[in-house]
Computed example of a mutant assay.
Amino acid sequence: MLSPVVAGVDGSAESLAAVAWAAREAERRDRPLHLVHAWEWHPRRQERELAGAAQRHLARRFLDRAEERVRAECPDVPLTHEQTEGPATAALLKAADQAELIALGSRGLSGFTGFLVGSVALGVVARSTRPVVLVRAGEEAADEHLPAADESAPTDSGYRDVVLAVDLDEPCDEVIEFAFEAARSRHARLRAVHAWHTSAAVGLGPGEIALVEDAWQGEEWLGFLKAVLQVWRDKYPDVAVLETVVDDKPTTALVRAATGAGLLVVGHRLAERAVGPRTGPVTHAVVQHVGCPVAVVPHL
């Protein structure tokens, strides 16, 4: 049985946008779609039965709305759903373990485009062993496509770029493969970005300082990036690839690169820290501030 694309449902506008994105992704990947709604309720004992019935009714309404959105977007996608009582993060992580990927909604930040990522979404991103895609409220099918040159529908035009964040200090196959597969399924260009920092000076010995030429260092990084991606170019010959190296902070470079993109793909190392699972600083900052959907791909 094919693993499904999973979407979390909570009745909000952002979760409906994630459901619609997940439906389109399931269609692109020829996978079924599975909707999950979870609630956590702590009523007084004498009220538990009544409160549970009310919550189940509300869950059914949320799922019905989500199913209507799916059928409007992708009527032929196989669809299942579940509702469960318990911590939402735990329920979504359980569903994600059996999934191709999981899509969750995030609110747009007031004042500028971006994400306000709640505790549930961050908990899933930090712990999931499968890719997690964060989708902002208002995201629609047309947003994945390039502006049409004529009066045709925006969805008749090609897809916007898939942007891949590459850490050349430790390139990760899982992250790179996800991005190439996303670009292939969309017939989109893949734009691979690596950010590097200028070394102001390098000491060669007592009293000897040599400045490193920025252009030369950039060419070195670009050559390395092309070498890392060559095996993936060979595996995905139909995917057009543009390699870019940027002398800038990684967060700044990725937010800028994601402007006008259809999807940003970043990695997340699964590692237990003293304070427990959490996202790294670059991933955390990126998912807060970009406008397009963000795929966070876990790796060891």
Results as ranks from 00 to 15, higher is better:
Leu50Trp: 10
Gly52Glu: 08
Pro75Ala: 07
Ser12Phe: 11
Ala53His: 08
Pro87Gly: 12
Gln55Asn: 12
His81Lys: 08
Leu58Cys: 09
Val70Glu: 02
Glu25Phe: 12
Leu92Asp: 02
Leu79Ile: 00
Val70Ile: 04
Ala51Phe: 08
Pro78Asn: 00
Ala54Ile: 07
Gln83Thr: 01
Ala91Asn: 01
Phe62Glu: 13
Gly11Trp: 06
Ala38Pro: 15
Val77Thr: 12
Lys94Met: 01
Arg24Leu: 11
Ala17Cys: 04
Ala23Glu: 05
Glu40Gly: 15
Pro43Thr: 02
Gly86Glu: 00
Cys74Ala: 15
Gln83Asp: 01
Trp21Lys: 08
Arg31His: 11
Thr89Tyr: 02
Ala13Glu: 05
Ala72Lys: 05
Ala59Arg: 10
Ala72Ile: 12
Ala51Glu: 03
Thr89His: 03
Ala72Ser: 04
Gly52Tyr: 09
Arg65Gln: 14
Glu82Thr: 09
Glu85Ser: 01
Phe62Leu: 12
Val19Asn: 10
Ala72Cys: 02
Arg28Lys: 10
Lys94Arg: 04
Leu79Pro: 00
Glu40Cys: 15
Arg65Phe: 14
Glu82Tyr: 07
Pro43Cys: 03
Phe62Tyr: 15
Thr84Phe: 01
Arg31Glu: 15
His42Pro: 02
Leu93Ala: 01
Ala13Phe: 07
Asp64Cys: 05
Ala88Leu: 01
Leu58Asp: 14
Ala91Met: 13
Lys94His: 00
Lys94Cys: 03
Ala53Met: 10
Val70Ser: 03
Arg56Asp: 14
Gly11Lys: 04
Ala20Leu: 02
Arg61Gln: 08
His37Gly: 09
Val19Glu: 07
Leu35Gly: 08
Ser12Tyr: 15
Leu93Asn: 02
Ser15Asn: 05
Glu40Ala: 05
Ala23Leu: 14
Glu49Gln: 07
Asp97Lys: 01
Ala22Phe: 03
Trp39Ala: 12
Trp39Lys: 11
Glu25Trp: 11
Gln46Ser: 04
Arg65Gly: 06
Ala54Met: 11
Arg29Met: 14
Gly86Ile: 03
Arg71Val: 12
Gly86His: 02
Arg61Leu: 04
Pro43Val: 01
His37Asp: 06
Trp41Asn: 07
His37Arg: 07
Arg44Gln: 09
Glu25Leu: 04
Asp76Gly: 13
